[in-house]
């Protein structure tokens, strides 16, 4: 069930990404009609199925002796530490972008205050989650912390100065990349689980929690994407230039933080 959800979402995201550079109006319609409800539906089913499998497994392990758990290989530990590191960096950057965007944006458009506060609060919650995860799992934080802080603040502030549409286009571009990035991580984790289960090992609750956290956060990030599109992100001029620069920057930052 979960892998098919991921695939569905990926297909939707891909559909959504391809045409929208050329057909902004049509795509707006597509997004609000198809994407927003489906993402919500997916998130709720995913969470429910997680919860049910979790409880049934707990019951099983109580009644019968539990299956063994496999030690993590070097590659898996590398993957997990770089995944947690890059997620913490990303959420740090997101909180800083919203912090920098809020004052100029809210000054010009007071009606955006609740939306910005809502998005900031969610990002701050994500940052707290990943901060505690990297401390708990002894993952080193990114060494380029000051650089990312500076760049994220600069990005948020400059797009907010360019106006409401540019700020929303920035949110849209960033959240598109982030949503895809989280999906890739979830897919790798599910592959790991499938392999363990095929070999007759059990997946520990630590990893079940991790994947449900990642799913929840991904859904919230994609919700921000919806909000940005609802608030005329596509009206930004020049939209294609702005979003492609920001998205290339995001991909570069993700690539770098996975390593450094």
């Amino acid at each position: 069930m979960p892998p098919s959800c991921e695939k569905n979402l990926m297909r939707i995201m891909r559909q959504m990404r391809r045409p929208h550079t050329r057909l902004p109006l049509h795509n707006n319609f597509l997004l609000s009609a198809a994407f927003a409800p489906s993402s919500r539906r997916i998130s709720s089913t995913a969470r429910r199925s997680d919860a049910t499998t979790g409880t049934s497994e707990a019951a099983q392990s109580k009644s019968s002796n539990p299956k063994p758990r496999k030690p993590l290989t070097k590659e898996q530990r590398d993957f997990l530490s770089s995944a947690l590191r890059v997620n913490q960096t990303g959420e740090l950057a997101a909180t800083l972008i919203y912090t920098a965007q809020t004052p100029p944006l809210v000054n010009a458009h007071p009606h955006l205050r609740p939306l910005m506060a809502h998005m900031y609060d969610q990002e701050a919650g994500h940052l707290k989650t990943f901060n505690s995860l990297i401390t708990k799992h002894r993952v080193r934080p990114t060494a380029l912390y000051p650089l990312w802080s500076l760049m994220a603040t600069g990005l948020g502030w400059s797009t907010a100065l360019m106006g409401r549409e540019a700020a929303m286009a920035c949110t849209e571009a960033v959240e598109t990349e982030i949503g895809e990035h989280y999906n890739n991580q979830i897919r790798s984790l599910l592959e790991m689980f499938e392999q363990w289960e095929a070999e007759g090992y059990e997946v520990g609750p630590e990893f079940r929690d991790l994947i449900s956290t990642l799913r929840r956060i991904r859904d919230e990030e994609l919700e921000h994407l919806d909000h940005a599109v609802e608030h005329d992100a596509k009206e930004a001029r020049p939209y294609w230039l702005l979003t492609s620069i920001i998205r290339a920057g995001c991909r570069g930052a993700i690539w770098t933080s996975e390593r450094v």
């Binding site: 758990r69 496999k70 030690p71 993590l72 290989t73 070097k74 898996q76 530990r77 590398d78 997990l80 530490s81 947690l84 708990k136 799992h137 002894r138 993952v139 080193r140 520990g204 609750p205 630590e206 990893f207």
Partner: peptide
């Protein structure tokens, strides 16, 4: 290759 890596609480530690 031997740098500090993800530390799991559920799964046994490597040799």
């Amino acid at each position: 290759s031997a740098l500090r890596r993800y530390h799991s609480y559920d799964h046994p530690a490597p040799a």
